[in-house]
C-alpha cells in the first residue's frame, strides 16, 4: 500500500471524526446537520478516492467513482429533507440563534390566510 493511499485515508478519517464529533457537540438539530453532512460526505469521498488510487483502473475503482457520484447527489438531498421536515414539524432552533426568517414568513402566511 503506497503512502498516497495512507495519506488519503488519514484525511478522510480526520474529516469523518470531525463530523461525528460535531454530531455530539453542537447544540441543535440544524447545526448537527451542518457539521455531520459536510464533513462525513467529504471524508467518505476521500476514503473512496484512496480506493481508486490503490486499484488503478479496474472494476472496483469504477464502482468507487460511481459511489462518489451517488454520495455527492444523495447526501445534501437527505440533509435538506431532514431540515425541512423537522422545521415543518416545529422543532425549534437553538436559543442562541440570531434570526429565523422561515418561521416569520410562515407565521405571516397563516395570519394573512385567516
Amino acid at each position: 500500500m503506497s503512502n498516497l493511499v495512507i495519506i488519503f485515508l488519514s484525511i478522510g478519517l480526520f474529516f469523518n471524526f470531525a463530523g461525528c464529533l460535531g454530531l455530539i457537540r453542537f447544540p441543535d438539530i440544524y447545526n448537527r446537520l451542518q457539521a455531520s453532512t459536510k464533513c462525513v460526505t467529504l471524508g467518505t469521498i476521500f476514503i473512496l478516492l484512496a480506493v481508486v488510487i490503490h486499484f488503478g483502473w479496474n472494476s472496483i475503482s469504477l464502482k468507487a467513482i460511481l459511489c462518489v457520484v451517488f454520495i455527492l447527489l444523495t447526501s445534501p438531498t437527505a440533509a435538506h429533507a431532514i431540515a425541512r421536515g423537522s422545521h415543518r414539524a416545529g422543532f425549534p432552533l437553538w436559543e442562541g440563534s440570531i434570526m429565523d426568517r422561515y418561521r416569520e414568513d410562515q407565521e405571516g402566511e397563516t395570519e394573512s390566510a385567516n
Binding site: N31, S97, M99, D100, R101
Partner: peptide
C-alpha cells in the same frame, strides 16, 4: 468543532 468554545451564530436567512 474542535474550538473549545464553539464560535457559532446560527440562524435561518432568506
Amino acid at each position: 468543532v474542535f474550538h473549545p468554545t464553539m464560535p457559532i451564530r446560527p440562524g435561518i436567512v432568506k
